[in-house]
């Protein structure tokens, strides 16, 4: 009995979304088949990896992570340059200092940091608010204006604030990260709402809401697989936006990346364990269709990029 390779017939394709400009611009998306199945489709762009930078020295990042970043974490500009030197495709600036529970920094302060970071690097920039839906509307508006022309991705637009955030992205020619809560239909719904207000769906990057290995990874994994199937097999234009997975923020707050060796001897050494936690979480997201990963540990990023090379 001879084997006939069972191929899927894909009718859809993921949009190409370019970030940044010039020689270091990065394009994500473009896949015409399920992840890495080159025998039945094409993958013009490899998944990109962004390293995360915070606008204020993050006090809640575990020691292992702080050590890996070195002494630059108090200065977002130097930190961003460090990320570029480490080989990140993109820098993801998270304006955590603007959160009312953090330093409640003003939109103007955030805008200055964003502009300074954008000027200091030649790789593309992703700019994320603090996750406080209300405050983010003001912050992201100021930031979008201050980085006009840099072709950034700004976010996250969520159900509560998508109109203002999308308007800011649109007015300043940025791409938009739109996050929904771990649900195929909600992801689609948000893209529809954005399209209805006139935002070009081919400028959206969808965030299905990430989770860490061991802490609900399987939910994100299956939601992403279903989104990708709807996009490619059912040709659903509202599902054909590239997917971003914001994994660092999830990975570096679980016990496995924080518990010292003495506290969990049966878990092995903290440094290896923590780095592996981010890499294996990343591998899960890649297999499910991630086009962009936001990570925190430079070593974990490097290993993830090695895996991506092996998968392409």
């Amino acid at each position: 009995m001879a084997l006939t390779i069972p191929k899927e017939t894909y009718s859809g394709k993921i949009y190409n979304v370019q970030l940044g400009s010039g020689a270091k611009a990065v394009t994500i998306g473009g896949a015409s088949a399920l992840p890495f199945l080159s025998f039945e489709g094409t993958f013009p762009n490899r998944p990109a990896v962004a390293l995360e930078v915070a606008d204020i020295a993050p006090d809640d990042w575990p020691e292992t992570l702080k050590k890996a970043i070195g002494g630059v974490s108090a200065n977002p500009v130097q930190w961003a340059k460090f990320c570029q030197e480490q080989g990140a495709d993109i820098v993801a600036l998270r304006l955590i200092g603007t959160h009312p529970d953090q330093q409640n920094k003003s939109p103007e302060e955030a805008a200055k940091v964003a502009a300074d970071v954008a000027a200091a690097i030649d790789i593309p920039l992703v700019i994320l608010g603090s996750g406080h839906a209300e405050k983010d509307t003001q912050v992201l508006q100021a930031v979008a204006t201050a980085t006009r022309g840099k072709n950034c991705a700004i976010g996250k637009a969520v159900e509560e604030n998508y109109k203002t955030v999308a308007a800011a992205a649109m007015a300043n020619d940025h791409k938009l990260i739109a996050m929904s809560q771990l649900d195929v239909n909600l992801a689609k719904q948000l893209n529809i709402l954005l399209s209805q207000m006139g935002f070009d769906k081919e400028r959206i990057i969808m965030d299905p809401m990430s989770s860490a290995l061991g802490y609900g990874l399987e939910y994100t994994y299956s939601v992403m697989e279903r989104i990708r199937q709807a996009a490619l097999l059912q040709n659903d234009p509202m599902m054909q936006t590239p997917i971003v997975c914001d994994i660092g923020a999830n990975v570096w707050k679980v016990k496995e990346t924080m518990a010292p060796d003495a506290e969990a001897p049966e878990w092995g050494g903290l440094e290896d364990r923590a780095r592996a936690w981010e890499v294996i979480t990343a591998s899960g997201m890649l297999a499910a269709g991630a086009d962009l990963l936001i990570m925190r540990h430079p070593g974990a990023m490097a290993k993830t990029k090695e895996l991506i090379s092996e998968l392409m």
């Binding site: 290995l213 061991g214 399987e218 994994y221 878990w267 050494g269 290896d272 592996a276 294996i280």
Partner: peptide
């Protein structure tokens, strides 16, 4: 089969093989 490696891989396996 270092302990840290297996913690990550066994957790992943548990996630993937959980009944949705």
């Amino acid at each position: 089969v270092e302990k840290w490696k297996m913690l990550a891989l066994l957790s992943l396996r548990q996630n993937i093989y959980t009944d949705p």
